[in-house]
């Protein structure tokens, strides 16, 4: 299937990347469909009701994976941006660019499902709880990162700018997150709405949840690979067009 290469940086060559991506995309696609449908069907139909939250606990099977991805995609973008700035691999930059939209959608759906879940359990769709606030902050930085790509044409310069924006954004996102946490834990004894998600969870929910997380991660990887491939081909087309038109 996939041969292990000596050096991970060989992925950075767009042509190597394309040939590998072409091989593994169908495989990933099938795997995604299997795990996602398995996890969701298991979660939706074959889990018991929570004694405290009733059947609304079933929302966990999409809320937690999307929230998990929303945060980790931003980390991945940060990593890819740093790699681009240091080693100048185009695939890395394109990966950061392609991941941003998926991350935005994941953030939105995590917030949406959270709001729907929050209404019956906490009695409100939205509260300025630290966790929710940090998601709002994350959303703003995703929007900022996407808007730089929306307004400017693809070039190495814009790549540099967007990478710096990503780095600066993550510094300030972390700062704001801790600023919010500082007040709610240290000085201000606010009402704590956030649930302990992983700790008091029962085995009956644990396994389908893990499968759902794996399924969503695979979904992200598949989409990411396809988007990177498309983006590389777009740049190829541009180069060809430029060569033809002179």
């Amino acid at each position: 299937m996939i041969k292990f290469r000596k050096n991970i940086w060989e992925f950075a060559n767009p042509n190597n990347f394309l040939s590998i991506a072409n091989k593994i995309i169908p495989f990933f696609l099938i795997l995604t469909i299997i795990t996602l449908s398995l996890g969701l069907v298991w979660g939706l139909f074959f889990t018991p009701e929570d004694y405290r939250q009733g059947s609304s606990v079933k929302i966990i099977f999409i809320h937690v994976p999307t929230a998990f991805l929303a945060i980790n995609i931003y980390f991945m973008m940060l990593l890819a941006s740093i790699i681009w700035l240091i080693r100048r691999h185009h695939v890395s930059l394109i990966a950061a660019k392609s991941a941003a939209l998926i991350g935005l959608i994941m953030t939105l759906s995590a917030m949406l499902t959270g709001a729907i879940w929050g209404k019956p359990i906490w009695g409100t769709y939205w509260a300025w709880d630290p966790r929710l606030t940090s998601f709002a902050i994350l959303l703003m930085f995703y929007l900022g990162y996407l808007s730089i790509w929306q307004t400017m044409k693809f070039s190495d310069k814009i790549g540099d700018l967007s990478s710096w924006l990503c780095i600066v954004g993550s510094i300030f996102a972390l700062l704001s997150r801790y600023a919010v946490f500082f007040w709610n834990q240290g000085l201000h004894q606010g009402p704590s709405l956030s649930l302990d998600k992983e700790e008091n969870i029962d085995n009956a929910f644990y396994f389908p949840l893990i499968i759902c997380i794996i399924g969503f991660v695979l979904l992200f990887l598949t989409l990411l690979l396809i988007r990177i491939k498309t983006e590389i081909q777009k740049r190829k087309i541009n180069i060809l067009l430029n060569a033809r038109d002179g």
């Binding site: 009733g54 059947s55 609304s56 079933k58 499902t113 729907i116 879940w117 209404k119």
Partner: peptide
């Protein structure tokens, strides 16, 4: 049919 919270569950799945 998931009892009390059917609507919420369905709408969150469909929305996502």
């Amino acid at each position: 049919d998931f009892g009390k919270y059917t609507f919420e569950i369905l709408i969150s799945y469909v929305g996502t």
